[in-house]
């Protein structure tokens, strides 16, 4: 089986999000980049399917030149090949991203195309579904359990009290959520090896997005310092008092 995982790089922010001076993007200079958790699972699933069924797994990302780091990360996690769709660094919206990805993979006959259910930063909830329509493939979303049986993909998603099961013929687009699998962590050696691999470079065509970001804003934080009840185990009496006041005991 030929599998594809599409991943997007996002800033690896922790305690707070810092914007660039022009408010056009998140300033990642201090924190670096990573990929969203759903997409780590997309890669892992693309790799596992190939381990079981044979074939090739490919990781694809659209973004500026240095998204190669995230693609190498995917190869380090077991993917066989990498495709970079190189942009000039400006943010692409969901319509142009989907069009470019669909155009780029159209001729390649992937059997399973894995996406995240939503991207970690922008959460547009649509790139995978748009690609599916452009390629005229069935699509299931929010998948947390996945199996292949011959030409059928069996995909489940969580609902309160259980799961909904979909069965679709491959080729198909599958958008996944974290929890689908436990992504393997690349070893030092596989990381080093990955960087030696030649990536395929594609030049995506930028089409106009009708949704155009103008400016980002960090919302007013309601942060205020917590009341310190004390240090170490001595603080527990104060804590019990506070919990009693809250009427949670």
């Amino acid at each position: 089986m030929e599998t594809l995982a599409c991943i997007k790089r996002v800033a690896d922010t922790g305690a707070e999000i810092v914007l660039t001076e022009d408010k056009q993007s998140v300033d990642a200079s201090a924190v670096g980049y990573t990929m969203g958790p759903h997409e780590e699972c997309a890669i892992e699933e693309a790799v596992q399917v190939v381990e079981e069924e044979g074939g090739t797994s490919t990781v694809l990302s659209l973004g500026p030149e240095d998204v190669e780091d995230q693609i190498y990360e995917g190869i380090g996690r077991g993917a066989d090949e990498g495709i970079i769709m190189e942009t000039d660094g400006e943010e692409w919206g969901p319509e142009s991203t989907a069009t470019a990805i669909a155009d780029g993979v159209e001729e390649r006959d992937f059997d399973l195309l894995f996406f995240g259910n939503e991207s970690g930063d922008n959460a547009n909830y649509q790139v995978g579904i748009r690609v599916a329509h452009q390629l005229d493939l069935p699509v299931v979303t929010g998948i947390k359990d996945f199996d292949v049986d011959g030409d059928t993909a069996i995909a489940k998603r969580d609902v309160p009290g259980g799961s909904e099961v979909f069965e679709v013929d491959t080729p198909a687009v599958i958008t996944v959520k974290e929890g689908l699998n436990t992504p393997r962590y690349p070893s030092m050696r596989s990381r080093m090896q990955a960087k030696k691999q030649e990536l395929e470079v594609l030049d995506p065509k930028d089409t106009e997005d009708r949704l155009q970001m103008q400016e980002l804003e960090t919302p007013e934080a309601e942060d205020s310092e917590a009341e310190v009840l004390g240090e170490g185990p001595e603080a527990v009496d104060n804590a019990v008092e506070v919990l009693e006041e809250m009427e949670v005991l």
Binding site: G120, D121, A123, M213, L216, T218
Partner: peptide, 15 residues
């Protein structure tokens, strides 16, 4: 909202 609400995006939309 972006980032689950930790960031706001101001945008225009046509169509």
């Amino acid at each position: 909202q972006r980032w689950g609400g930790s960031l706001l995006e101001h945008a225009t939309m046509e169509g």
